[in-house]
């Protein structure tokens, strides 16, 4: 009996791992790393995570969970409430609707796909923020942030593939 209930709760834990990983990435992205000059360009870890799960296990990361993750990121990060929600939803939608193009293909294709998504959402983010704050927010830091996010995508994928294989199963 105990073994059954234990395996059941382990299974449940497995199934929420993608959602938990998104929350963890949001927390990690605001943790201070103390690297000089890098504070302004912290990569968007949650975006990569959402993109990954949207492609490879969308059944474990439903869009309402993405909504909650985005809201959490907005409340924690201090940017306009709802902006990250919209951005993550777009990322999730693109990942999910184009997943056929990525699954089973070389990793480079997913990477390029992610680049396109990142560029699109970056523009959405920048325009929305400029409208909401009433000034043109300077773009260099934004650009660096997305370049870094793009560059770290393989690293993140490497980690998530391990999580996917050994934890989620």
């Amino acid at each position: 009996m105990i073994a059954v209930s234990l395996s059941r709760s382990l299974d449940r834990l497995r199934r929420v791992t993608p959602i938990l990983s998104c929350f963890l990435m949001v927390l990690l992205s605001v943790a201070p790393h103390g690297l000089p000059q890098f504070q302004a360009v912290s990569p968007d870890l949650a975006m990569m995570t959402v993109f990954y799960w949207a492609i490879y296990r969308p059944d474990l990361l439903p869009n309402w969970a993405v909504f909650v993750v985005g809201l959490f990121q907005d409340l924690l990060g201090g940017v306009i409430i709802g902006l990250n929600v919209a951005v993550l939803l777009i990322v999730h939608y693109v990942g999910l609707s184009q997943r056929r193009a990525f699954i089973g293909k070389p990793f480079v294709i997913a990477w390029v796909g992610f680049l396109l998504v990142a560029i699109g959402t970056g523009i959405v983010f920048w325009v929305a923020l400029s409208i909401m704050s009433g000034t043109i927010v300077i773009g260099r830091a934004v650009l660096f942030q997305y370049v870094l996010t793009f560059a770290l995508f393989p690293v993140m994928t490497w980690v998530l593939v391990r999580v996917h294989r050994y934890v989620v199963g």
Binding site: G70, L75, I81, L83, V85, A86, L89
Partner: peptide, 27 residues
């Protein structure tokens, strides 16, 4: 569902712009 959630996000932005105190409390 996406459309609905996206509208929710836009709604949140408007609420955030209109009711600063509420947002600050939530934060």
């Amino acid at each position: 569902a996406y459309l609905f959630l996206l509208l929710g996000a836009v709604g949140l932005m408007l609420v955030g712009k209109a009711d600063v105190v509420l947002v600050e409390r939530a934060r």
